[in-house]
Design a binder for these strands. Structure first.
Lengths: 336, 336
DNA sequence: GTGAAAGCGCTAACAG
DNA sequence: CTGTTAGCGCTTTCAC
C-alpha cells in the first residue's frame, strides 16, 4: 500500500476531493480542462485508486473467484486459462481456490467468500451429488452471480456452461462399435456426477441404437485410487469374456487402460479399441496414439467468465438461467 | 456484500463497536464473559468481517498474487497447487495472473498491483532477460514482499526458490554419455533465461568432464513455434552426422524430439537416447517410456508461499535474501 | 474492562 | 461545473 492518494492530488490541484473523483471517473459534470489537469497530475504521480476504499464505498469490486477441484488436470488448467483471458481483458482480478474433491473444503471456501470479498463466482463442483445446499445458501445470503461449468449441480437453477456430453458420448461409442467392438465397456467413476451420468446415457443409448444388449457389468467403476483402478481393470481384462472396447469417460482412466493392456499384452486396437475422454496434449504420442474425446475447456472458461461479468455489470439477471452448451471434439487416432 | 455488520452486533449486545472489535480480535483487554457473548452472537448471525473495511483501515490484507507465464503446463500447475495448499491453510486468498510470456502483460499486471490490492507477490518471470526494472520499481513503490521461483531474475536481490538446475543437468548429461551417447545434443530455447543458462552450464561441464569436445552446433535452439521447432529438429536429425543423444531442457521440446525421431524412423534409444526435462505424468506411457528430469514443482510452490507469508507476517525481512534450492529428480526409463 | 472519537481513501447525494 | 457533507465497516489510540 503506497503511492499518492486522491486527497493529495486534490490538494495539489487546489480542487475538492469529489471533483477529482468525478474527473477520474470521466463524469460529464466536469469540464474538459479540469479533467485534463487532473488526469495529467494523476499520471505524473502514477496515481492508483485504493481498491479497498472504493470497494468499501461502492459495496462492490472487480474481483471474482474460481473454485475448481484440481488445477493439475489439463481440463481445468485450460478452463482457468480461458477464464483469465477474459477477466484480464475486462480488468478483473481472479482468485483461485482448489477443493481437491473435498466437499468440506468446498463449503469452507464458499463460507469464506460470504464476507463479500468478491463480486461473482465461477465454480466446477467436486464429486458427489449430495449436498448442494451450500450453493443455494451462498446465493441466498450474498445474492452474488454464480456461473457453474462442466461439473454442474443439475438440479439447481443457475447459469451453466457445459459440454454436449450426451451427444458426444453417443458418437464416441458408435465409433467404437463401427470399428468392430462388439462389447465396448464404459469406464466411469463411482462418484455420481451429472457429467458422467450424461456420458453414460449417451453410451447406453448408442449401444441400444446399434442392437447391442447392455448388461451391468459393461460398466466399470473406477475410483480416485490409481493402484486400485489398475487392479480393477486388470481383473476384468484378464477374463475370457473381456470387453473388446473401452470408452474411458474420465481422463486418468484412459491412461490406466493403456497400462493394463500393455501389461496383459492385449493389443490396441486389435484386441481392445480405446477412446479416452481427455485433453492431454500427449495423446497423439502414446503407443498407439490415443483417440480422444476432448472438451472445449478453454472456451468453456471463456464463456463462463463472459457470462459472469455480464451478470455482474448489467444488473440484468436475464442471463440467470442460461445454459451454454459447447461441443466436445472427437479425434480418431490409432487406438481404434 | 451482505450479512450482518459489527455495528449491528454491537447494538444488539449493548456494547460499543470498539469493544466488539477487540473481543473478536481476542484482545486481552476484554473480559472472558464479554468475549463469549460476542463470539456467540457473531456465530449465530454468521458474522464475517468486511475485508475491504478492515484492509482499508489496517492498510494490509490477506491477499497475495501469483504471476506465472502459463497455467497449461504441468510445472506451473503443480507449483500453483503447492502455493494454494499453503495460502489455503494460512487463510490467504490467491490471485492468479497469466503473462503468456508477454513482457508487456507482465509489466501491466505489476503496475496494476501497485494499487495495494495485495500484501505479497509470487512470480516466475517470462522469457527474455532484458527488463527487470519493473520488479525493482514495483518493490520501490510498494515495499511489498516478493518471492521469485524457478524463472528468477538472477541479478536482482530478492528471495528465490529454484531447482538445482546446474547439478541435475550435469547428472542427466552424464547419464546420456554413460548410456553410450558420443554426441549428446542440448535442446534449449532461444530466449535467454537464467534457468536454461544453468542447465546449459551443467550440460557443457558434463561433456568436458567426460572428455567430449563441445562444439556450438551441439546446442539446438528451439522457439515457441512448435511447427518451426519440428522442422529445425528434423533438419538436424536428417544429417549424417546427427546427434545420438538428446537432453531436452524444456518440456515441449522432448515431445517434438519424439515426433521427429518417430517420423525419421530413428529408434529411441538405439539411435538416439533421450532425456527430457518435464513434469508430464504421461512420460512413462510414451513409446518408449521417456526418461525424465523433473522439477519439484509442488514443493517449489509450497516453499515460495511459505517464505512469502513469513515475510508478510513477521516484518522481519531477514528472509529477504534467502535462496531456497530444491533438487530435480532424474527418472531413468526406456528412452536411454 | 469498556467506550468515544478519529479516520483509512473513496463515492455519491445534495447544494450552490 | 465545483464543493460540502456524510458515510462505507472497521481498527486503534486515548479516556474513563
Amino acid at each position: 500500500m503506497n503511492g499518492i492518494s486522491m486527497i493529495q492530488l486534490a490538494k495539489e490541484l487546489g480542487l475538492s476531493v469529489s471533483t477529482v473523483s468525478k474527473a477520474l471517473g470521466d463524469s460529464h459534470e466536469i469540464s474538459a480542462s479540469t479533467k485534463k489537469r487532473v488526469l495529467e497530475l494523476a499520471k505524473k504521480y502514477k496515481y492508483k485508486p485504493n481498491p479497498f476504499a472504493s470497494n468499501l464505498r461502492k459495496k462492490k469490486g472487480k474481483q471474482i473467484a474460481v473454485i475448481i477441484p484440481d488445477i493439475v488436470n489439463n481440463f481445468f488448467a485450460l478452463a482457468v486459462d480461458g477464464i483469465e483471458s477474459v477477466t484480464m481483458s475486462k480488468h478483473y482480478d481472479t482468485f483461485i481456490y482448489l477443493t481437491h474433491e473435498n466437499l468440506e473444503r468446498e463449503k469452507a471456501v464458499l463460507e469464506h467468500l460470504e464476507s463479500g470479498l468478491i463480486s461473482g463466482l465461477i465454480i466446477s463442483v467436486c464429486t458427489g451429488r449430495e449436498g448442494y445446499a451450500h450453493f443455494q445458501e451462498f446465493y441466498e445470503t450474498t445474492r452474488l452471480p454464480i456461473v457453474f461449468f462442466d461439473r454442474v449441480p443439475d438440479l439447481l437453477q443457475f447459469p451453466k456452461v457445459i459440454a454436449n456430453n450426451y451427444e458426444s458420448s453417443f458418437d464416441a461409442t458408435a465409433r467404437l462399435i463401427k470399428a468392430g467392438s462388439k462389447r465396448p465397456a464404459l469406464i466411469t467413476t463411482t462418484e455420481p456426477m451429472f457429467t458422467s451420468m450424461e456420458r453414460r446415457r449417451g453410451y447406453q443409448d448408442a449401444l441400444e441404437k446399434h442392437g447391442i444388449v447392455f448388461t451391468d457389468e459393461m460398466i466399470i467403476h473406477c475410483t480416485d485410487d490409481m493402484a486400485l483402478n489398475y487392479s480393477i481393470l486388470r481383473k476384468i481384462f484378464s477374463q475370457k469374456k473381456r470387453p473388446d472396447g473401452i470408452f474411458a469417460s474420465i481422463e486418468k482412466y484412459a491412461i490406466t487402460s493403456y497400462e493394463v493392456c500393455k501389461d496383459l499384452k492385449l493389443s490396441i486396437p486389435k484386441d481392445v479399441k480405446v477412446i479416452g475422454m481427455t485433453n492431454l496434449r500427449t495423446a497423439a504420442l502414446l503407443n498407439p496414439s490415443l483417440s480422444t474425446l476432448s472438451q472445449p475447456a478453454f472456451d468453456m472458461g471463456k464463456e463462463a467468465a463472459g457470462l459472469l461479468i455480464k451478470m455482474i455489470e448489467k444488473k440484468s439477471y436475464a442471463a440467470a438461467n442460461d445454459i451454454i452448451v459447447l461441443p466436445n471434439e472427437l479425434t480418431i487416432r490409432d487406438s481404434i
